[in-house]
Write a protein that binds this DNA or RNA. Sequence first.
DNA 1: CCATCTTTTCAGAAATTACTGAAATGACGG
DNA 2: CCGTCATTTCAGTAATTTCTGAAAAGATGG
Lengths: 196, 196
Amino acid sequence: MNLPPLIQSFVLHFGEMGSRWGINRTVGQIYALLFLSRDPLNAEDIVEALGVSRSNVSMGLKELQAWNLVRLQHKPGDRRDYFTTPDDIWQIVRTLVDERKKREIDPTQSLLREVLMQKPGTPEERHAQDRMREMHDLFELLTGWYDDVQRLETERLVQLLTLGSKVQKILEMKDRLFVVPGGRTKRRDTKTSPER
Amino acid sequence: MNLPPLIQSFVLHFGEMGSRWGINRTVGQIYALLFLSRDPLNAEDIVEALGVSRSNVSMGLKELQAWNLVRLQHKPGDRRDYFTTPDDIWQIVRTLVDERKKREIDPTQSLLREVLMQKPGTPEERHAQDRMREMHDLFELLTGWYDDVQRLETERLVQLLTLGSKVQKILEMKDRLFVVPGGRTKRRDTKTSPER
DNA sequence: CCATCTTTTCAGAAATTACTGAAATGACGG
DNA sequence: CCGTCATTTCAGTAATTTCTGAAAAGATGG
C-alpha cells in the first residue's frame, strides 16, 4: 500500500472497522479510498493503492455496487469502469440506512409476522410470542419513523437533528395550546408504548 | 437443538442475523433464547437448548456481558449464574445504540479528529481532509441528536417517533408564529448543512 | 483444608471467510 | 472476425474465526 499518510490512516481504519460491520477488510478499504478520492478511480488504480489482487478488487466493487454505495462512471475515450461515491454525504447515509434496513430489519419482520400467526401451544411459547410481538411493534414504529423523516429534504432533516430534544419543548407548547381543557391530548395509539 | 418450533425459528434466525452484525452465530442464538425466555437461564440450560459446548456458552455469555446486553442474576440456594435480558425493550435499544456508538463511531471520530489536525501536503490530501471533515461533522450532528433524545423518557420518545415527519408541520407552525416579519428565521449554523 | 460444583481459559480442530492467479467471458475498434 | 484490453468467475489456498474438550481456576459448604 502506497498512499499519503493522512489517507492511509483513514483507509486502514475503515478496513478494520469493516469487520465490525458485515463487510471484509478489502471492501472497507476500497470504500474509504473512493470516499476520499476527488476523482473517480478504476480497478487498476485501486489495486495499486491498496496492494491487493485485481480479482479481489473486482469482487469488492461488486459488493459495494450491491450495497448501492458506489456509482459507476465512464470517461470518454476510455473503456475502463470508473467508480465514485456520491458527493452528498447525506445521500450516503440514506443509502446505508436503506440497505441495512433491507438486509436486517425486513427479513426479521417477515419472520416475526409469520411466527406471530401461529398458535402457541404452551405458556412458554405464549410468552415467547409476546416478546416477539414487542420486537415486531418496535421495528414497526422505528421503520415508520424512518420512512417518514427520510422523505424530508436534507435541510429540514438537519434542522430537526440540530434541534434534538428541544423538539420536546415545542411539543409541550403545542400540547398546552391545543389540549382540550380537562381532557387528554389526542395521540395515535401504539402497542409499543412504555410498560410502566 | 431441542426447542418448541416457534422459539426455534426465532433462535435460528437470530443466529444467522448475528453474522451480519459483528457477533457470531452462537452469541446470536444465546441472546435470542434469553430474550424469549420468561425465566432466567443458567449456562447448562443454554447448552441443552442450543446443543453447543459448555465452553462456547461461557464465551458467548462473556461477550454478551461485554455488550451490556444481559443481566446476571442469582437464585437463593443455587450458586449457578442465571442470565436474563431486560424486560423493557426500549432499554435494550438504548443499550444497543450506546454500545455500537462506543465501538464504531467513537474510535472513528477520534481518528478523524487526529487526522484533521495534520497539515495536508498536496491538493489530493486537502480534498481528502475536506471529506473527512464532512464525515466528522455528520457524526457530530448525529451523536449530538442521539445524546439528546436518548435522555427523553420513553413515553416522550415514542410520541416523537410516532409523529415522524409530522413534526415538520409543527416546526413550520412555530416558524410562522415566531419569525421576524420580513427577516430570516434564526437557526444555528452547522457545517453539515446541505451543499446545494 | 477438602470435596464438590461452577465457570473460565486455552490449545488445537473444524468451519468459515477472504484472497489469489489463471482461465473464461465480455466489449470494443478496426 | 480478430486482437486487445477490461472485467468476471472460480478452484484452490491462505487466513481468520468459531468451537470443542480438557485442564485450570474459583467458590462454597462442611
